[in-house]
Nucleic acid binder design. Structure first.
Lengths: 227, 227, 227, 227
DNA sequence: CATGAATGAGGATTCATTCAT
DNA sequence: AATGAATGAATCCTCATTCAT
């Protein structure tokens, strides 16, 4: 029922863009087809259904995301460095899969009700475990504040990072790493001045990046990016 | 074309709940009617259209929100206290209008394209001015860090606060003021420990509240709250 | 289920006006009620249904119309005078029942399909007999042209007269009798000049009117007219 | 948004028939679809809306009508011949576009309120100018009676001709030209006998037709006609 | 007499999807 | 691979009608 993976990816990229811009429900198959320069019916040569399009968009994205996250989690970093690396990795994913991230944000709640999208729920659980783990370890090791409400901090971090997909435009003046650094600086040290404490050093962030460089780079060559 | 403001508010509250849960587009009029215990057509005795329902939900919410915000902005507070008060006020609004806030978050981008919802765009502009102003003054007065990317910080704060509507449940164990204090603590001072710096004191937050008490309380008595 | 015949007539008059202006189908009960200064449901105290409103409007009109027509037909006039009197009477009815006539024109075809409106079909048949009779006698007596296609002439006359209801406004500068005279002049003698033939004399028309005066006047006092 | 002009024309012809028979408002899209042997929704592959169907029906008709009328008006005929030719042309249009004419008659008043149907109003104005002009010239040149109320005569002629669409059935025993001749005979010379005056000679009518033959014939070959 | 609120049967329109070509 | 045409279910909305107060 399908064909060249290239065309497929092109079409999915188009679809993702439209889904992200107008929402899954509000997006008509016809609109996607228009954008792709074909008729609505023709899309069904490539895909089973509208649903299977989001499915493929989201699962592709999550696969890549978890490849990145797992590299971070398996790197044996300290809690603070783990948080830094997760945030940085997240902004990189936003950069690469802005549309998919936006879709994930807006639609995952609804979609995850259907069995087909069970992996969304599962992914969310893994997420929670990853972040909560890092935060807990951090508090235990006193690199994070003792009075932190861990669950609240988790939500704070998670949302703070991902909502950025709603305004981030790839190719803008800030690289994802740059944005990550600024966010981390706010999150870790707050927006009020510190006396003479160490702030997030560019070095730290970059070196972390380097540590994961292999994986990251490998993926960069295979992925075309959303637009 | 309408009737008793009581019934109206009940129905709007029901509608808001459904819109928030499933999204505006995905919500059928029939669903709202079901939830309200009537037939779909009957809703049209009270409202012109599905659209006019969201309209009323959002504009009512924004009116109240801006009453609160303007009380804060007109209180002559310093930048830090302004930020604290704005955040606190925001969490209060989330507490009172959770559904409306969630709808605003998800749908305002699409809706604001229509002339009827022009006030959404306008509101967003006022928002930006309010937050940006406070942040700029704060940097100038050295109560916020000099190296802050103001626009980024604005987005950070704005999103950070409002996304909370997606998980917040009124009547939970944390009061909105409590959550505001925790958020402010993270935002202002970061999640890493400070040596001996002043953190957000409950006192500060509360006293700010007290400063605005008259207005706030006044509204609290008149407004029934969404749920 | 009903009440004072006065209110009833007022309401019917209002309804007739709206039906005439917008068509029966396109007229909502609510619209009529608005115009009458009440709520839609309240009309049902006075009338069984929207249908029964047109019914009463049309049958009242036709009763009066036939009273007039039968006076003419029973007056023992010659064919030409009969035609003149029928036309004159018709314009008088248009003057008195403009709305009803307009409704009759537009809706009678559809309505007459329903058994309830059988009298519309019957009325049409009586119509045809009356006009055709006068025309046939006229041709036989050589007061009408021998080469006349009687059926065509019938349709010509019938339509010619009744469509006037679509533009006629009572209270304008021409009295119905004046318009009748002009129409008759065109119909009887044509629009091209005649050498020295007798044209429709005002005298003829008026005297006919006088002959039927009794009946006509009697009805004039009882009927309020469409307003 | 549409497709093969053939199918389109078929469907419009079907729609026109139903609109003419039951009125625009009373005609359901489903009814048209039934008549066309498809489902209601399928019509929307071909047309934007029910409204756009009448629109296309009416504008197509009026375009053709005015092509014919303008050929007449530009032919430099005398007033009487102009009237004869206009009437003849009108009956030809009734023959070709019976349904469209009937719709025009019944619905144009309502429809012309909407901006989209502004051309209906404009057409009416052009109509008036054409007829009024011919009548005025005729009176001035003494080929029409001096005592004619021009505006009344205009309405008389206009209505007289077009209402015929309500009973005319193409393919009947009378050709449109034949009916035109009879109508003209009544209108020009009246239904009472003339002493020895010239009546509308078949020759006149036919020769007028011939004068415009080229145009008329040209259109006849391109147009299929509604039935 | 009239209101306020609701019913329930459509009616126009949209849209994912199918399928022969 | 893609088109053109159609399906059919769902959606928003309208409206005549009912009825308790």
């Amino acid at each position: 029922m399908s064909a060249s993976p290239e065309r497929r990816r092109e079409l999915l990229s188009t679809a993702a863009e439209v889904f992200a811009a107008h929402g899954y429900n509000a997006t008509t198959v016809r609109r996607i087809a228009d954008e792709a320069g074909m008729l609505a019916g023709s899309l069904y040569y490539h895909f089973d259904s509208k649903e299977s399009m989001v499915d493929e968009i989201l699962s592709t994205f999550l696969d890549e995301l978890w490849a990145g996250y797992e590299a971070v989690l398996g790197a044996g970093l300290g809690p603070r460095e783990t948080v830094e690396a997760l945030v940085t990795e997240s902004f990189r994913e936003i950069d690469r899969h802005r549309a998919a991230v936006a879709i994930y944000q807006k639609e995952s709640k609804h979609l995850s009700a259907q069995p087909r999208f069970g992996y969304l729920t599962e992914s969310q659980r893994k997420f929670e475990r990853a972040w909560l783990g890092a935060l807990e370890r951090g508090v235990a090791e006193r690199v994070f504040r003792a009075d932190l409400d861990i669950r609240l901090a988790y939500r704070f971090l998670r949302d703070t990072v991902w909502v950025a997909a709603s305004w981030y435009r790839p190719g803008g003046q800030h690289s994802p790493e740059e944005i990550a650094r600024q966010y981390l600086s706010m999150v870790l040290d707050g927006i009020t001045p510190r006396d003479a404490t160490t702030t997030v050093s560019a070095t730290t962030a970059v070196s972390t990046t380097t540590a994961l460089g292999a994986t990251t780079t490998a993926r960069e060559t295979t992925t075309a990016g959303p637009s």
